[in-house]
């Protein structure tokens, strides 16, 4: 037991250190706020430079014309690249969306077991995979098998990249649907698959669209896997057995050219690309992300 005298004695050992502790507290808060500012500066700088350098080259011709000959007076445009990126997004979604959504349904509705846990785990691992490895994989599977670089190989690589994102967000948003909806469906004697399609997917629609838009934003910026699959091209799409161009790839090529006109065009391409990506992200934010905070990992991810 501690007596009153002892307590008085103990209190003498307490230092009146409060002011120095509060100073430390203030210093830490200052440092931490400094960290936040440091992180914002690059974002500001990137957006500023893109607009400053990219806006002057914007024109109808820039957006629609094919690139001119390297080093020539007429730099042309990035038409084929925009076309290629849009086609790649559409085609990758054709595979990535249905497979990803079905996978997400499996994890949410039938995945409450060891197998489901394993899939969920590897899905997360695949989502964080270096995309260059996925590009090499698509090269080995499609390009080497078919014998030519093509939009098909690019589509395959990008679909693998978007798949785990969609699976994850589908699962998360299905889990947010109240259990009572399911119970109501089963109580009416409706088949499980019908409950899933007619009740669950409808209620989880906003989450699904979020996932799809975020995954599209992600693959729109992917560059590394395209080097091994679509190769790049100065012409518009001319067939499924021909190399095609894409926006990020075109920016990469332009940045590597030693001409100021090429650099300027690279910035122009970057402006278009960032507009696409930011529109998707900001759109998602304002349209659908009000359900945030449910522990869902609706994280925005960047292209590699």
């Amino acid at each position: 037991m501690i007596t009153i005298e002892q307590r008085a004695e103990f209190r003498k050992h307490f230092r009146n250190n409060i002011s120095s502790r509060l100073i430390t507290d203030k210093i830490v808060k200052g440092i931490v706020f400094g960290c936040v500012l440091l992180a914002i500066i690059p974002l500001g700088s990137i957006l500023l430079e893109i607009v400053r350098n990219g806006a002057p080259v914007l024109s109808i011709e820039f957006l629609t014309a094919p690139p001119g000959a390297v080093g020539s007076d007429d730099p042309g445009g990035i038409g084929p690249a925009i076309q290629g990126t849009l086609m790649l997004i559409g085609m990758s979604s054709l595979i990535g969306v249905p497979v990803g959504v079905l996978g997400g349904i499996f994890l949410s509705e039938y995945g409450n077991n060891k197998y489901g846990q394993m899939i969920r785990f590897f899905n997360d691992v695949l989502a964080e995979f270096p995309t260059i490895v996925i590009g090499l994989f698509a090269f080995a599977v499609i390009v080497l098998t078919l014998g030519y670089f093509s939009i098909v190989a690019g589509m395959f690589a990008l679909s693998v990249i978007m798949l785990p994102i969609i699976t994850r967000t589908t699962e998360e948003s299905l889990k947010l649907v109240p259990v009572t909806y399911r119970e109501a469906g089963y109580a009416l004697g409706i088949k499980r698959s019908v409950v899933i399609f007619r009740i669950l997917l409808t209620s989880a629609k906003s989450g699904l669209i979020t996932g799809i838009m975020l995954s599209i934003a992600r693959i729109a910026g992917e560059t590394a896997p395209l080097i091994f699959t679509i190769l790049g091209n100065s012409d518009f799409f001319s067939g499924f057995d021909q190399p095609v161009d894409a926006l990020p790839l075109r920016i990469y090529r332009l940045a590597n050219l030693p001409y100021d006109t090429a650099t300027a065009q690279g910035w122009g391409g970057a402006l278009i690309l960032i507009l696409i990506i930011l529109t998707l992200n900001v759109g998602v934010r304002y349209l659908f992300l009000r359900k945030r905070g449910g522990g869902g990992r609706f994280r925005i991810a960047a292209g590699g």
Binding site: A39, I40, P42, L43, S45, I46, E49, I50, N53, A217, A220, G221, E222, T223, A224, P248, I251, Y252, A255, T263, G266, W267, A270, L273, I274, I277, L278, N281, R285, R299, I300, A301, A302, G303, G304
Partner: peptide
């Protein structure tokens, strides 16, 4: 939101910015 936007910028744009600005 800003931190997540930073995450949304593709690698190629960081490269471009790094090469010509940073």
């Amino acid at each position: 939101f800003i931190v997540e936007l930073l995450a949304a910028i593709p690698s190629i744009i960081y490269g471009l910015w790094g090469l010509f600005v940073f």
